[in-house]
Design a protein around this nucleic acid. Structure first.
Lengths: 152, 152
DNA sequence: TACTGATAGTCAGCATACTGAGCAATATCA
DNA sequence: TGATATTGCTCAGTATGCTGACTATCAGTA
């Protein structure tokens, strides 16, 4: 049959919906106000100091137009800084602030426990297998979205 | 390490991102203007004529506030109708139109081929296994989002 | 050096998704 | 019956994500 509820696309949406809800609930309960996207951006800025927005977008597979707003909010919360690049006046170099570093350090255990919660219906082995299959499907479909993952 | 790119939540987001992109590309190429959400809603209305919006939301696990806009757009495109219920004057009964039925019939093969494309990196067996694991994880996490699946 | 094309970032517009609030109608129960 | 709780729907506000267009800048080349 063609039951939408049993299509891969629908399952993808549902799983992501739960993943986001769990993330926000756990992080909120721990007293922080950070979305999954903001967390990924902040962690990637910390790991790649001074990178520009397009590179950041490629490293975590966002659209470049989405990044603008995400950075806006990180800057507004005092977690990141946006500086004009001296080498390329079109580009903005991104830096994490001390406050951002503190937030990231305190929040990471919560984020990791959220990951366990969203897989709580699966055994450890099944969780690993789900992640392997997702990685494989994503690698094959990477070029199909407007925001493919791009290695540094 | 805590690489966001390798967390279940991030993989969920990436896979869904690709799934939506593939859906829109295939459906658009076939000459239709319908989103994944609109498709799921329309197919569910067809299968459950006269259902109200809250029931529809439960059957495909949307938030009730999201449904309002989705139905707006289906009605605007002439694919569905919203009627006041005679039994409960708070509720709206939803019906698919002839045009909606035609669209659904013509679009379904395209939707199914889109599902195959988003799994193209996996063998048939792996695709089945991915779906099984997603279903299992979703069932366990169903109550964790604001829009859980609700049986009729 | 002047032209051409590509690139970094932003913006407007649209469609999900969510939170929280509110209104109208219905259900429940003292 | 009358007060109270619940339910169906909508709306305002916020945050992804996308398309497509635009500006400013850079890079390569005739």
């Amino acid at each position: 049959m063609s039951d939408p509820n049993d299509m891969p696309g629908h399952l993808a949406r549902r799983f992501q919906q739960i993943a986001v809800a769990v993330f926000l609930a756990e992080v909120g309960e721990a007293g922080f106000d950070l979305t999954p996207v903001q967390y990924a951006a902040l962690a990637t800025i910390k790991a790649n100091p001074g990178l520009d927005q397009v590179t950041l977008a490629g490293l975590i597979a966002y659209d470049r137009t989405t990044i603008t707003g995400v950075i806006d909010r990180l800057v507004q919360k005092g977690l990141a800084e946006r500086r004009a690049s001296s080498r390329d006046r079109r580009a903005r170099e991104l830096e994490i602030t001390d406050e951002g570093r503190r937030t990231l350090r305190k929040i990471t255990p919560t984020v990791e426990s959220a990951q366990r919660i969203m897989l709580r219906g699966l055994s450890a082995k099944e969780g690993e297998e789900l992640m392997r299959l997702l990685r494989k499907a994503i690698a094959a479909g990477n070029a199909l979205s407007r925001a493919p993952l791009r290695e540094a």
